[in-house]
Design a protein around this nucleic acid. Structure first.
Lengths: 270, 270
DNA sequence: CGGAATTTGGAATATATGTTCTATTTTGCT
DNA sequence: AGCAAAATAGAACATATATTCCAAATTCCG
């Protein structure tokens, strides 16, 4: 019985198939129940799993052992971690890496590549297809698209402005150069695309507020659902990105920005 | 604080938005972390959630109470019950998504997420650790760092400028606002960080040429080794990004930009 | 600036949950 | 049927985890 412990869900499944032919009654019940309810492993206790399978907890424990784990906890950990890729505390990892002088730039790079990948995967899970459709729809109908995004969000805003220009979409980037406000450039029939992340730039919030009260549609790219933009009835695309200190890996945000640009550009030229 | 306990995820979100305006510091951290990682609640312990939010477990407990639960366990139960598991794993999900949602913005998102991931993976393979070290070294020694990146590279340049500012690194972004050149701001002891990708912006090349001939060190972020910047003896970090149509997913480039910023910022403060 | 109220950190405690052990039952074999 | 080996149930035990409590720090107000 000294097989090595499954390290991935796939290995787990293979092992499950392997053993399931030579199993006594109770353990077979476990195998069948687990096969049919893999997704419950991450969120259940042994007692619950055992009851579901119609066996005693101790029987279920033996079952875990046969699969190669030291116990139920170890098996559960596999499922808990592999759900959502497991990006628990990148920000502390990065902080440590940065503080410890031993962190070479290359190690830092590896870490950030990983963060970016996790963020991208997560993006697919958290973006709601319907909301994305609505956003594209609203922007495609706009006479002119106004873009605002300051400080840490400015790279995103400027990227979108560039992409729109390349796709012949009328757009205006409100960068605040020279402290000019240009609020009056925003007119009925236009749409505002606002990008802001914690700590939210006051100017952005103000602009959304002003524009929203005039009945002009707003599409927002922001983090989480507790963003202050929630107060106004904007179409909100929330992107959660790993950040630490002042830094934010913008992978997911920029990815969404490209998608918006391309989708809107395509739709308008139809 | 005797509100009734949220019975659905939607109610939970509403409650979260309700309270999140009137929350002290630590509890606000909890709210933000939870909003960004709702999916982790089902499979984490209080200790893990607390660590993720950067607070003590006891603080997280108070947070659960404010949301209307008797404790963390009750809140977790809500998420465990409505947990359906996001399997099968990433690659198959992506494939399904693309086939099923063909032509929709969401399919486009899946496409770009994949492109981004590929670019990031590729970055690790193509960046040379030694060159990266040299670049960090050169930038860390600079009196002042001048940053240039125009058109499609501008988001990257502006990101770097922001990051340097936050890390108290003296830096100047040459954005060309108003057609002013500011060549004379670049002085001996300074370093130029140039970002450019095909089709290379003439202004950037010119600046590199001018500066380089004055004996001022240049660090370049560019694509491939055939970039025109090769002519000048700059420290060249080449990033090959996967293109999708006319658009460039900047994931890898921005990732490298963050790494440079953080590494340089850290090194200077040693 | 000083005192009250709130918020916070950390250790102490309670509880739930996983794990092990052993007597008993079942199964397989001759 | 009778014996040995394997499997099982259930209780006892160990550990991980949630929860509470209170002193210290902070913020708020007059």
């Amino acid at each position: 019985m000294q097989e090595r412990v499954p390290a991935t869900i796939t290995q787990f499944e293979e092992r499950l198939i392997d053993v399931s032919d030579s199993l006594p009654k109770r353990l077979r019940q476990c195998a069948e129940y687990v096969a049919a309810n893999k997704d419950r492993i991450a969120v259940s206790t042994v007692a619950e799993m055992a009851e579901g399978a119609g066996v005693q907890p101790s029987a279920f424990m033996r079952f875990c052992r046969i699969l190669g784990f030291s116990g139920f906890s170890e098996m559960q950990r596999l499922f808990r971690d592999s759900y959502s890729g497991g990006w628990p505390d990148y920000s502390t990892r990065l902080k440590n890496l940065r503080e410890k002088a031993e962190g070479t730039p290359f190690a830092l790079l590896a870490e950030f590549v990983d963060v970016g990948r996790a963020s991208l995967e997560n993006l697919l899970k958290t973006i709601d297809a319907k909301t994305l459709d609505d956003a594209v729809e609203a922007l495609a109908k706009a006479q002119m698209i106004h873009i605002i995004g300051l400080r840490r969000s400015f790279p995103v805003a400027s990227y979108i402005a560039y992409a729109f220009e390349k796709m012949n979409v009328p757009a205006m980037l409100h960068s605040g150069v020279g402290g000019l406000d240009n609020h009056n450039a925003i007119r009925p029939g236009d749409v505002l695309l606002a990008v802001t992340f914690s700590p939210y730039a006051a100017e952005t919030i103000e602009m959304v507020e002003a524009v929203s009260s005039r009945g002009i549609p707003v599409v927002a790219m922001t983090d989480t659902i507790v963003s202050p933009l929630r107060k106004f009835d904007a179409i909100t695309l929330s992107v959660s990105e790993v950040d630490f200190g002042a830094f934010r890996s913008l992978s997911a945000t920029l990815c969404l920005a490209i998608v918006l640009s391309v989708a809107v550009g395509t739709k308008r030229s139809e």
